[in-house]
């Protein structure tokens, strides 16, 4: 319980800015002049529109009155600005801070009749602790932006699935095309618009979201078409000379036939690209 027990006791708030704070304080009056009786209940309401110290309860009218503060509601009704609000209990001229909260626009600070303080956001949800999460402290965590993912150095923000690919260490596109049938067929891929079978042993790959330039790494591989290692069964895949562009590249596959090698299809084409997206 929060009791006002003298004619100078009160609840006051200190606001840091000229940002409107609506307040409602409700209380029950006990009369101790004789046999203690409940002598009524009331609300005090108002708006603070300045950086100021404001009485939000009033004080008992008689020395024999006791006011039991049932609840305190404070709401920042400004459209965009925050206000630091300190709630103080003034007892016999001495003020003690009860709580201090930065109320964002639309937020409310409520003390219920059990004495619990809650902060509500503009949507009416209870605001959890504002402590930032760390390796050792549980708390709020922010989602990493594209720039923070690309920088790759932040250790306090969380990675969202839709932004994982912006990290420098993550593949920006990849694919696996099977050639076991009559034409290369993409079995799995990411950020690939199309593959084009332009000739035997040649595959043109177009990327959906392009790289920022042609300087990215293409990691490639192939699957052999046989279990014997004859030169004709070898399948070596390369990025075709002069074809690596921001949004496409051509892969060549050759065997090891002397002395010029022959263009051959692999059993599958595999590639993954690392770099910076446009």
């Amino acid at each position: 319980m929060l009791i006002l027990s003298s004619t100078t006791d009160k609840i006051e708030i200190v606001t840091s800015a000229a940002v409107d704070i609506d307040w409602v304080t409700s209380y029950t009056i006990l009369d101790l002049s004789g046999t203690p009786v409940v002598d009524g209940a009331d609300n005090h309401t108002g708006t603070v529109a300045a950086a100021a110290t404001t009485d939000i309860s009033g004080s008992p009218a008689a020395a024999t009155d006791r006011w039991n503060i049932n609840s305190i509601n404070l709401r920042n009704r400004h459209a965009s600005s925050a206000n630091d609000v300190t709630v103080r209990h003034v007892n016999s001229g001495t003020s003690r801070e009860l709580i201090k909260v930065t109320l964002q626009a639309g937020w409310a600070l409520v003390r219920d009749k059990e004495g619990h303080w809650f902060v509500y956001d503009a949507a009416g949800g209870v605001v959890m602790g504002q402590v930032q999460a760390s390796d050792t402290v549980a708390g709020l965590i922010e989602i990493a932006s594209q720039a923070e993912m690309e920088a790759g150095s932040d250790t306090s923000r969380a990675v969202a699935p839709g932004r994982l690919h912006f990290h420098p260490g993550v593949a920006k596109c990849w694919g696996m095309a099977d050639v076991s049938a009559n034409v290369p067929t993409l079995r799995k891929s990411y950020n690939i618009t199309s593959i084009t079978d332009t000739a035997t042993g040649q595959l043109t790959v177009t990327v959906a979201t392009d790289f920022s330039d042609a300087f990215y790494a293409v990691v490639i591989g192939s699957r052999l078409t046989a279990t014997t290692y004859a030169v004709a069964n070898d399948r070596k895949v390369y990025v075709r000379f002069g074809t690596q562009a921001a949004g496409s590249f051509i892969l060549d596959c050759i065997d090891s036939t002397a002395t010029t090698n022959l263009a051959k299809d692999p059993d599958s084409w595999n590639w993954a690209c690392f770099g910076d997206l446009a």
């Binding site: 034409v183 993409l186 079995r187 799995k188 990411y190 690939i192 199309s194 593959i195 084009t196 079978d197």
Partner: peptide, 26 residues
Amino acid sequence: RESQFIAIVHDDDSLSIMEFVVVDSL
């Protein structure tokens, strides 16, 4: 996955086969 195959004819009459990706794993 979903894709569309496309026959592409070049000016020397050679043929490329494109697999145009419509739906990928995402």
